[in-house]
Each structure stands twice: as structure tokens, then as C-alpha cells.
């Protein structure tokens, strides 16, 4: 068997003019340059500046004052609301990551069947993904409204009056109500990821399994889930990241962290501290603490993924 690579290897090196590696890839570097410049200006420098600010007290109007690690110490020792927000963020993250992926997989299995109207079902299930958080937040605030909301009206219609409650203002249900909306919005996205994965699995594997007498559950366990592992990895990683850093809009629109901080997440607390109380340095410290948590979780997750059966 011959290959181009093998032929190239056969050419004596002495006969070649050696070009420094950087010049050989000059065009690639040049093409990357605009993106890198934008990345540095709009991402790297602000992150660096944010890190610098996290060691300062700054209200946005006056000069920043260096206070060392005081912002970080305060996060842990003095800010009960931050700890509450961390706890809520973790509850939010665990719930949405689990449910969105399980439900997404379940729906993908359903809409992967050859059934009448499957395109309609796929589109309908994906539709919430296309709506903005503000629209969804307002829409669901009306659904949950205790006076004229659809949810309570539906429960009353079904004779379940004992379940009727002010969903967003009852501390026992407020966070759960928001989590439900986030799951509703994103499940369609994860369904599409899993659907793409399912459609990439060769059909003949299933045919062989059927000939061997494997039932549906065995086929799912032995063929579908193992071959979906790369997609599952990406899907979980995306939902994990989103659960920590994309929960602001929904909470802000629906409850703004209330009642009495029962739905406060780190991002709403951060924004309040930064822009309402003018504690931009403290908010920066909070942002870096969150960054650290997300980085550790993501890194650990990726390491576990790499050490498993599948390399990603």
C-alpha cells in the first residue's frame, strides 16, 4: 500500500530547502489573526481586567481601591446570600442537567421512529429553543400566575384544588417552577443532539441484534447507549455549562431572585452587587469564584470522559 505521506518521506531531506515552521504556516496564522485580536480585546483583556478588579473596591464612579483578597474572604465568611445562591445554582444545575438529558434522550428515541407527523413533533419540541429567555420568562410567569394563570386553572378543572398555589411566590415551589421552564426550553435542543447521534448508528447493528434475539431493552443498553456516548458527553457538558452560566435571564425575568432569595442564583446576586450596589470589585470576585467552580467541574468531567472507554 502506498501513500502520499510515504512518498514524501522517500524524498531526501538534504535536497529540500528548510523553511522555518512559522513561515510555512504563515497564511494560517494570518487568517487566524483577526479572530485572535477580537478574542484578546473582547474576552481575554476583560477577563484579566475583571481579575484585577476582584482585588479592588470599586463602585464604578470613583477610582478603584486595592483591598487584596478581602472580596474573596467576604464571599466565604460574610455573604450568606452568596452561599444560598451557590446552593440554589447547584440544585438548578443538577436538576436541569439530569432531566434535560434524560428527557432529551427519551424524546429523541420517540421521534427517531418512523411515525406519521414526525417532522411536526420534532419541530414542535424544538420550538422553545428558538424563543428568547425574556419571552419565555414572561409567558411562564403568566402560566404560573395565581389569579389568571393556566396552570392553576387547569388544576382546578381537574379537581386538584389542593395543588393550586402561587407557584413563583411560594418559597417551596419557586425554584422548581423556574427549573421546569429551563428544562422545557432546552430539552428540544438536547433531543436534536441525541437524534443526530441515533441516526448515525448503523442500522445493521440492530438487525444483527434482532436476529440474535436481543429485545428492545437489550438493544438500547448494548448498542444505543454505548454508541451515543460521545453525543451524551457533549450534551451533558453543554447543559452543565449552561446550567451554571446561562440561568440569569430566566430567574431575573420570573422572580429576580425572590421571594427572599429563595430563587437567587450566583449570577443574579452578582448582577445585583455589581450594578445595583455598585460593588463591581466584589462582583468580579464572585464571577471568578463561579468560573473556578465551573472550570473544576468541567475539567473533572472531561478527565473522566477521557479516561473512560471512549476518547473524545
Amino acid at each position: 500500500m502506498t501513500s502520499t505521506r510515504a512518498s514524501e518521506a522517500a524524498v531526501p531531506l538534504a535536497g529540500r530547502r528548510t523553511v522555518p515552521r512559522v513561515y510555512r504556516h504563515l497564511s494560517a496564522y494570518l487568517m487566524l489573526l483577526p479572530a485572535v485580536v477580537l478574542l484578546v480585546i473582547f474576552v481575554i483583556i476583560p477577563i484579566g481586567y475583571g481579575f484585577y478588579l476582584s482585588f479592588h473596591r470599586w463602585d464604578g464612579f470613583n477610582e478603584p481601591v486595592f483591598i487584596g483578597t478581602r472580596n474573596y474572604i467576604r464571599l466565604i465568611e460574610r455573604d450568606d446570600i452568596f452561599l444560598k445562591a451557590v446552593s440554589n445554582t447547584i440544585i438548578f444545575a443538577i436538576s436541569v442537567v439530569l432531566v434535560k438529558n434524560l428527557l432529551g434522550l427519551f424524546l429523541a428515541l420517540l421521534v427517531n421512529q418512523k411515525i406519521r407527523g414526525v417532522i411536526f413533533f420534532r419541530t414542535a419540541l424544538f420550538l422553545p429553543v428558538t424563543l428568547s429567555f425574556v419571552v419565555i420568562g414572561l409567558l411562564w410567569s403568566w402560566v404560573y400566575n395565581p389569579a389568571f394563570g393556566l396552570l392553576n386553572a387547569g388544576l382546578e378543572l381537574l379537581g386538584l384544588d389542593n395543588l393550586v398555589r402561587p407557584w413563583l411566590s411560594d418559597p417551596a415551589t419557586a425554584l422548581g417552577a423556574i427549573i421546569t421552564v429551563d428544562i422545557w426550553k432546552w430539552t428540544g435542543f438536547h433531543m436534536v443532539l441525541f437524534l443526530a447521534g441515533l441516526q448515525a448508528i448503523p442500522r445493521d447493528l440492530y438487525e444483527v441484534a434482532i436476529i440474535d434475539g436481543a429485545n428492545a431493552w437489550t438493544r438500547l443498553r448494548r448498542i444505543t447507549l454505548p454508541l451515543l456516548a460521545p453525543v451524551t458527553f457533549i450534551s451533558v457538558l453543554l447543559s452543565l455549562n449552561g446550567a451554571f452560566v446561562r440561568n440569569f435571564e430566566l430567574v431575573f425575568v420570573m422572580t429576580d431572585g425572590g421571594p427572599n432569595h429563595t430563587t437567587e442564583v450566583v449570577l443574579t446576586h452578582l448582577v445585583t452587587q455589581a450594578f445595583r450596589f455598585g460593588k463591581l470589585g466584589y462582583a468580579s470576585a464572585m464571577g471568578f469564584a463561579l468560573f473556578l467552580v465551573v472550570a473544576v467541574i468541567a475539567f473533572t468531567y472531561i478527565r473522566i470522559g477521557r479516561s473512560g472507554t471512549y476518547n473524545f
Partner: peptide, 15 residues
């Protein structure tokens, strides 16, 4: 802001 939250807590019966 702290008053706003505390009153929410009182009215909601959580604190």
C-alpha cells in the same frame, strides 16, 4: 433591598 427581601420572607411565612 434587605428590607424588601425580609418583608417578602415575612409575608411568605418563611422567616
Amino acid at each position: 433591598d434587605a428590607f424588601q427581601s425580609a418583608i417578602q420572607g415575612i409575608v411568605g411565612g418563611t422567616i
